[in-house]
Design a protein around this nucleic acid. Structure first.
Length: 970
DNA sequence: ACCGCCGGGTGCC
DNA sequence: ACCGCCGGGTGCC
């Protein structure tokens, strides 16, 4: 699935692929070419219209020599063979057709001569082609210089471009091998020169074998060489690091302290020259003091980051651990100049200890942890169907138990430690002179509490950092307060909304020592507000943490590189010209550059990576057992009747060829069958919505569509948006009953207007016909079901049997009971209570504070703590840590085996000491057995060559149809 | 000479 | 710009 990174898939495929020798692929498009490798998804982008400026499908129309004039009016300089950027300047006073020429740094060099500017303006304004320039020679000219232009665009626009140029008396040189770009001609071969070669060669000339070896090399030493060095964490790190974590720390510290020139730059006679664009400048380019830590989840990215903060705390030195004598109590030396800052910290009962202590002018590093008040709003972006609760839950309750305890405990102690050793004071002194000291950490809301937990766990208790959670309506508005923190923790949503709403976003006014983006792929969409906000942060050191390194396209990588401020990639044009397009055209140099780039800035280890022959993580075993359950006769009867009815309906759809048009209904049938496998009471929504859509009132129609959408969303089928092929974000349903992300479908409509068609069924589409998912109503429906008299079911019996057995063997063992149906979990609660089990529960919809409580009580090892957690399959993000459990009972199979695996990983992860035994209850002769078949297929697919392959719309359709057939025995 | 030619002034868009 | 272009000065050999 998604997090199968390209490295694995590419590599695996190439290992096993039977590749022909020197076939000539000249008749292939690059997409065809790469699809041979199952890599088109990495190399090319989806062909959904309007998703980008369509730079990827561009072909080279031809080249043209022109002139840059007006050089003497501008300061931008170029070198021979340097790339230049051509930009329209429609507001130019003298010529509305003006096209200016900038160097790689964005400094203007001159203008395109007006005769040529006229057709260029037309071509560029109408987006008929992208025009790129290189100055072949004459770079030092005083007045004008030549520029070699390449015209790239969609095939269908080629003629229009040629015509327009012809009208003005220009003619493109055809994109033949050596003449295009002027490369290969004498002026370029003379110098050591740029490492790019003529585009357009690659896909034609590179043999399969060559390409294979390129790919082999692309990733083979990702984990080698300089990344094997280990470094101990600073004293302040309270947790011993594992070898691979020491490696990561060493690598990160070395990157932060690096004095080397950044990648693709070299020093040449007192100039610093970029080898990709040939741009040179006197000023030394700033190094990228950071990178991408792309370890698999569970390898300890958070811990390593904390270790980095403490170990490379200041000026390449660690945060010293003070040695303080407890008798040096000088309260007043700390609590001086107190004033209320207006933002409340530690608001509430247990931590309501001098909220204004935060504003104290500290004399040392020694300050207690501080947490802002925290209102448990839910992550809106992730779960659009929830509204933000407007009730005023006492915010401090959100804080994890441990944190509060610690605050209480530590406050007095903090004062004691206010007197410091000389070393600490000297650090402090330097601090004030040497700029920023604060690390800003940005993460999704769902892992915010995890960060706080990890700080608690991994920072030595006698070390005190200022940690401020910048979140909630009461968050500080005081820049100097923030800049005094050691760590500021916030979320992408806060970052984006601050940035969007006011021009003076606090986070953007400060210069940070270090910015860390957790789950950094969150910024892969360059147009998203949070991406823009993140890219605009000012920081000396920049890190991206992600478990999904380069998810599926080169384009995704751009925002990440842009964030890292690796020149010249901060500008998309240079990224596109030097890496993205060369790679997509199969140019050797492009692949090699991508390789060195990734190698240079990322560290990635998987769970199966090894250090000195030993696995990075030695997790206990994980065993999965399938326990078959036989339905009682009565249950079977109900099941069979629903199945027959549903099968008949679905067969009818097949005969009519309308399966996908009735997809929601089909899912409904399957859902009911899956529910019946669990418990007869689950299957209450028998309302078949198969009545005609045409003859209902708009209100009825709306309601029907909403119901269908809810069915799709709640069916657990893990529906993906057919446009972005990612999980649904802001789901909307069309009148033809297909569910997409709202932004995705709106973009399609926009780009196809006025006659937009549904990507799935080609029915007419209109923005005003899209129906959004209304906020979810309360759980009252579940409560209602509770009123019904409780009965057991075969599956519940099987479960209870197993649980009681287990308790006899070992009463302390902890279990997760997982289901996709929260109602089912509610039904299971009853026999659990009856049999005297202490249990807790975690749903996706639970308020944050409740979640934290549930997790903490379950993780607690004391006797009397819950031994069972009822868990809804998708509750919690990847950060959820339930290692107290060593047994998992999966009550119903998921459509997507990856969802199951992810769920198992919540206890089978770092920190698990026992073997994990998983029991999957599967009803014999039922849809559940068929689901296992589908799971098996998906697993094979994921393990195979086409792991990362994105399916086309028609493939998605066919897959769905096949799945339906398998599931309902057709 | 309603031309050619000369040489100075001048110069992006 | 060691160019082109402009427009004024000039005008047989």
């Amino acid at each position: 699935m998604a997090w199968m990174c390209m490295r694995d898939s590419a590599w695996k495929y190439l290992q096993s692929a039977h590749l022909g020798g020197d076939r000539n692929y000249s008749h292939y498009t690059s997409r065809d070419f790469y699809s041979q490798f199952g890599l088109e998804d990495f190399l090319c982008t989806d062909d959904i219209p309007g998703t980008d400026e369509d730079t990827d499908s561009a072909v080279l129309f031809g080249t043209l020599r022109g002139n840059v004039v007006g050089l003497r009016y501008y300061t931008g300089v170029v070198n021979n063979n340097e790339m230049v950027s051509l930009q329209r300047e429609p507001n130019n006073l003298y010529d509305k057709n003006a096209v200016k020429v900038n160097n790689v740094n964005g400094n203007q060099v001159g203008h395109i001569k007006k005769e040529l500017a006229a057709p260029l303006a037309y071509i560029m304004d109408n987006k008929l082609a992208i025009v790129e320039g290189i100055v072949p020679y004459g770079a030092k000219n005083a007045f004008t210089m030549p520029v070699q232009m390449s015209f790239w665009g969609k095939e269908e626009n080629k003629q229009a471009v040629l015509d327009e140029l012809k009208m003005h008396g220009f003619k493109l040189a055809p994109p033949s091998k050596s003449s295009e770009f002027g490369f290969g001609s004498s002026w370029v071969s003379g110098r050591a020169g740029p490492s790019y070669s003529a585009p357009g060669h690659g896909a034609v000339q590179m043999t399969t074998e060559q390409l294979k070896s390129e790919f082999d090399r692309l990733f083979e030493d990702l984990k080698e060489d300089d990344k094997t060095h280990e470094m101990e964490g600073a004293e302040a790190v309270g947790t011993p690091l594992l070898p691979h974590q020491k490696q990561a720390l060493a690598w990160m510290v070395s990157r932060e302290n690096s004095k080397e020139l950044p990648l693709f730059w070299e020093e040449k006679n007192n100039f610093y020259c970029n080898t990709l664009t040939n741009f040179a400048e006197k000023e030394r380019p700033e190094n990228v003091l950071g990178g991408i830590l792309a370890d698999d989840m569970g390898l300890g990215k958070t811990l390593v980051t904390i270790a980095l903060i403490l170990t490379n705390f200041h000026d390449g030195k660690p945060l010293p651990v003070e040695k303080v004598k407890s008798d040096q109590l000088h309260k007043e030396s700390v609590v001086t100049g107190v004033k209320n800052e207006g933002h409340e910290l530690l608001k509430g009962t247990s931590c309501n200890v001098e909220p204004n202590i935060s504003s104290v002018k500290k004399k040392s590093e020694t300050v207690q942890s501080q947490y802002s008040s925290f209102r448990p709003k839910r992550a809106k972006a992730e779960k659009p169907k929830y509204t933000v609760s407007s009730d005023s839950e006492e915010s401090e309750e959100w804080l994890p138990q441990q944190t509060r305890t610690k605050c209480e405990k530590d406050l007095p102690a903090t004062r004691k430690r206010s007197k410091n050793t000389a070393s600490v004071q000297s650090v402090k002194k330097n601090d004030s002179e040497e700029g920023p000291r604060t690390t800003l950490i940005i993460c999704p809301l769902s892992v915010l509490s995890n960060w706080i937990d990890q700080f608690e766990q991994h920072i030595r208790p006698d070390v005190h950092l200022n940690i401020y959670v910048y979140y909630g309506p009461d968050r500080s508005k005081d820049p100097s307060f923030l800049s005094k923190q050691d760590i500021v923790l916030t979320t992408y949503n806060i970052l984006a909304s601050d940035y969007g709403s006011r021009g003076d976003s606090l986070l953007h006014r400060l210069k940070w020592l270090r910015v860390v983006l957790d789950e950094g792929h969150t910024i892969r969409n360059p147009n998203a507000q949070q991406t823009k906000a993140a890219l605009n942060l000012e920081a000396q050191r920049r890190w991206i943490l992600t478990g999904t390194p380069i998810q599926n396209s080169l384009k995704d990588l751009w925002s990440l590189l842009s964030f890292l401020k690796l020149k010249p990639f901060t500008d998309r044009e240079w990224w596109r010209r030097t890496i993205q397009r060369p790679v997509m055209l199969g140019e050797q140099g492009g692949l090699r550059r991508l390789q060195s780039l990734i190698k240079n800035i990322t560290l990635r280890r998987t769970k199966t990576s090894k250090i000195k022959g030993k696995p990075v993580l030695e997790l206990p075993e994980r065993k999965v057992f399938i326990q078959h359950v036989t339905l009682t006769e009565e249950e079977r009867k109900i099941y069979q009747s629903v199945k027959n009815e549903g099968k008949a309906a679905i067969s009818r759809y097949f005969n009519e060829g309308t399966v996908l048009a009735h997809y929601a209904d089909v899912l409904g049938v399957l859902l009911r069958l899956r529910q019946l496998c669990c418990h007869p009471h689950l299957c209450t929504n028998t309302s078949s919505s198969s009545c005609q859509i045409g003859d209902s009132t708009p209100e009825e129609l709306r309601e029907k569509l909403v119901n269908k959408m809810k069915l799709v969303l709640s069916s657990g089928s893990d529906e993906e948006c057919a446009i972005c092929l990612d999980s649904l974000n802001l789901p909307v349903i069309t009148h033809c009953a297909h569910v997409f992300c709202k932004p995705c479908i709106c973009e399609v409509i926009q780009s196809e207007q006025p006659n937009a068609k549904c990507p799935l069924c080609r029915n007419e589409l209109r923005v005003e016909h899209l129906v959004e998912c209304p906020p979810e109503e309360s759980d009252s429906s579940i409560e209602k079901k509770g009123d019904r008299e409780w009965i057991s079911s075969s599956k519940i019996n099987a479960l209870m049997h197993a649980l009681i057995d287990l308790r006899k063997q070992n009463p302390a063992v902890k279990c997760l009971i997982v289901s996709q149906f929260t109602t089912f979990l509610s039904l299971i609660e009853i026999p659990l209570k009856e049999s005297g089990f202490v249990f807790t529960r975690l749903n996706g919809s639970m308020a944050q504070k409740k979640r934290v409580q549930a997790i903490q009580s379950f993780q607690d090892r004391q006797t009397g703590s819950p031994t069972i957690m009822l868990l809804s399959l998708k509750a919690g993000g990847v950060g959820l840590n339930l290692t107290a459990a060593s047994r998992v009972f999966l009550m119903d199979p998921a459509w997507n085996p990856a969802a199951e695996d992810q769920c198992f990983d919540r206890c089978h992860r770092l920190g698990q000491k026992q073997d994990v035994i998983i029991t999957k209850f599967i009803v014999k002769d039922s849809v559940e057995e068929n689901m296992l078949k589908i799971q098996k297929k998906k697993r094979e697919l994921a393990a195979g060559a086409f792991a990362a392959k994105k399916l086309t719309v028609s493939e998605v359709k066919q897959t769905k149809i096949n799945e339906i057939k398998t599931l309902i025995d057709l």
